[in-house]
């Protein structure tokens, strides 16, 4: 693999810094009678290089937690810390930059633009970052090679199979060379064989490049492969096993 992340540096950092932490985070939706607590006083720390599974029943608050960790939403109370800094204090443009350059996202629904080519889809984060067209194409082909999709680069995203789509989504998450990949039910839409292949790619990235994984899942097998399992029940953290 030719990706530029300096895994030695990331691993060294892992020993000392919490790359991301949730401190007494509560999230409520709605007002008055309709008020609903989706997350209740959740605290945990994640070190760089860990692979964390967030598990729990449907509706327990896993996605809500992941959105908060990924700084796409703000907690009602409590704080999210990124590398020891309060994310709530970050300005809008710093947040945008952090999400663009430090985070990668993989979703259960792929969110690919079906009419655009696979390559176009993959380089979207680089386009947003303002990378020039030649450099981003080159980088796009690199990550497509990593997920073994380089021969599909020019195909329309619509023409891919489910497993190929999810690999394209992983390539897109990788293209900005992130430190953390957030994945919400990455294998939820895939049969077990293709799901396995996608998992393999994710864990390979974790092991070879030290990319921190935060994976929301209710797939037991996937959860077992993670170095850590955080269990959520009715918005509360009820288990944290390594």
């Amino acid at each position: 693999m030719t990706i530029t992340t300096d895994s030695a540096k990331v691993k060294a950092m892992a020993a000392t810094t919490n790359i991301i932490a949730s401190e007494r985070v509560t999230k409520t939706y709605g007002k008055g009678e309709n008020r609903f607590t989706a997350l209740d006083n959740v605290s945990f720390k994640v070190k760089a290089g860990e692979s964390v599974a967030i598990i729990g029943k449907s509706g327990s608050g896993k996605s809500t937690l992941m959105h908060l960790l990924a700084l796409m939403d703000k907690p009602t109370s409590g704080t999210i810390m990124i590398e020891g800094n309060d994310a709530g204090q970050l300005s809008g443009s710093k947040l945008d930059k952090l999400r663009n350059q430090t985070f990668g996202f993989v979703f259960q629904q792929f969110f690919l633009n079906g009419n655009a080519s696979v390559l176009e889809n993959v380089i979207l984060p680089l386009k947003i970052a303002g990378v020039g067209s030649r450099a981003r194409k080159q980088r796009g082909m690199e990550v497509l090679r990593d997920v073994e999709l380089e021969d599909k680069a020019k195909n329309k995203a619509n023409d891919l199979s489910g497993g190929q789509k999810q690999r394209a989504v992983i390539a897109r998450a990788l293209v900005n060379d992130p430190q953390i990949i957030f994945a919400d039910e990455p294998t939820g839409n895939l049969d077990s064989a293709t799901g396995k292949k996608v998992e393999d790619i994710l864990f390979k990235l974790n092991q070879e490049k030290g990319i921190t994984l935060i994976i929301v899942t209710h797939d037991e097998d996937l959860a077992k492969r993670c170095s850590r399992r955080i269990q959520i029940k009715d918005g509360k953290l009820v288990g944290d096993k390594r």
Binding site: A70, L95, K97, R99, N100, Q101, N113, P125, I128
Partner: peptide, 16 residues
């Protein structure tokens, strides 16, 4: 909607 949400999640700012 989804595409815009995705772009914003990936750090595209509102002005853009």
């Amino acid at each position: 909607t989804k595409e815009i949400g995705l772009m914003k999640a990936m750090g595209m700012n509102s002005r853009r």
